[in-house]
């Protein structure tokens, strides 16, 4: 499943962040990596950014980025 199709409040495990993604390294340094457990905290309306809890911190990522991240 893609991250942007997830449900608010659910915890997911990141299974794939494509290597071709230009922002992969940035996601990685913020604690969103393959194998990481992340929780969707909030969706902002109109395909706005998603708020993710990774580790003990919060990260906002845009809808387009979330669409490329595979989770389960």
């Amino acid at each position: 499943m893609r991250l942007n199709n997830g449900k608010k409040g659910n915890e997911y495990m990141v299974t794939l962040i494509p290597d071709e993604m230009t922002v992969k390294q940035k996601l990685l340094s913020l604690g969103i990596y393959e194998g990481a457990k992340i929780t969707i905290k909030q969706f902002l309306p109109g395909k706005g950014p998603l708020i993710i809890i990774a580790g003990t911190g919060e990260v906002a990522i845009s809808h387009e980025v979330a669409h490329l991240i595979e989770v389960e």
Partner: peptide
Amino acid sequence: GEKTALIMEIPP
């Protein structure tokens, strides 16, 4: 230039 996507830490 690249149109960048938002990836941003939200500090407490």
